[in-house]
């Protein structure tokens, strides 16, 4: 790759950063189910970071919080209030799971912004599992809590009778598209941002545009920091909205 760059031709490999490779052994080894890969490493890093913030940060249990405890409490209060406001009081039972999702996505996104790191949430396999877990859990929960009346979610009783079947069809489609949009939104945002960063970094090889490219990297990096937090927030609040639909399906 370096030789090619020297050869004069610009070589972009913006997608190389997303390659999953075994952490130990040869780079070309096949990736089995239990192979420890870079994805494994960065997921473990997310676990450690979350544990550091939420457990080490709060170990003082101080009434007047330290800085790290205050951040942990802020995250707790933020998600707790979101669940309470959006899903209602009875949604608070599922608060730990929503908190898990939020912190995992937030920390994965931020860890992915460390140069040379790997962004686990840029992979559709990861976000699809996250979204499908939410979708299945919410659907099953809806039927368990409300029985057949959960289907009234698709029957817009406030609309004119003639429109209701059409609306039901639209509602049904939108319901099943939810996990797709839910997962692709996150993975797409993360992937696109990181790919754009790499493209700008690639342009920095050319002396003439290097200053602009480097400025671009900085600007996009700033944007990505924002996007990382916003996407974690969006994923979480949509989870709360879906949870609300499951708990209170009547419009």
């Amino acid at each position: 790759m370096a030789e090619e760059a020297k050869g004069g031709g610009l070589e972009f490999h913006p997608m190389d950063q997303f390659i999953i490779k075994p952490l130990f052994g040869d780079a070309g080894d096949t990736v089995g189910m239990f192979t420890i890969t870079n994805a494994t490493f960065w997921m473990a890093a997310a676990i450690l970071a979350i544990a550091a913030l939420m457990i080490l940060g709060t170990r003082g249990r101080a009434v007047v919080p330290t800085r790290s405890q205050s951040v942990a409490e802020l995250a707790y209060g933020f998600v707790y209030k979101m669940v309470e406001d959006v899903a209602g009081k009875d949604g608070l039972k599922y608060f730990p799971y929503i908190m898990t999702l939020f912190l995992f996505i937030l920390f994965s996104n931020f860890l992915g912004l460390i140069p040379m790191s790997f962004t686990t949430t840029s992979h559709i396999a990861v976000t699809a599992i996250l979204a499908m877990a939410v979708f299945l859990a919410v659907t099953i929960l809806g039927f368990v809590k409300n029985g057949a009346s959960f289907l009234s979610l698709f029957w817009v009783s406030s609309a004119p009778l003639a429109l209701r079947p059409i609306l039901a069809l639209i509602e049904l489609i939108s319901y099943f598209v939810r996990p797709v949009s839910h997962s692709i939104r996150l993975a797409g945002n993360m992937m696109a941002g990181h790919a754009v960063l790499k493209v700008f970094a690639g342009f920095a090889q050319v002396a003439a545009v290097a200053p602009i490219a480097i400025f671009g990297v900085v600007a996009i990096y700033g944007l990505e920091v924002l996007v990382s937090a916003i996407q974690a927030y969006v994923f979480t609040i949509l989870t709360c909205v879906y949870l609300k639909d499951a708990l209170h399906p009547h419009h």
Partner: peptide
């Protein structure tokens, strides 16, 4: 897109589930 390399999916899903369970 490496994201569409299905051979790595079982690996990612396995570690993701472990990660989520641990965080939970």
């Amino acid at each position: 897109m490496p994201q569409l390399d299905f051979t790595t999916f079982p690996n990612q899903i396995f570690w993701l589930v472990i990660t989520l369970v641990v965080i939970y």
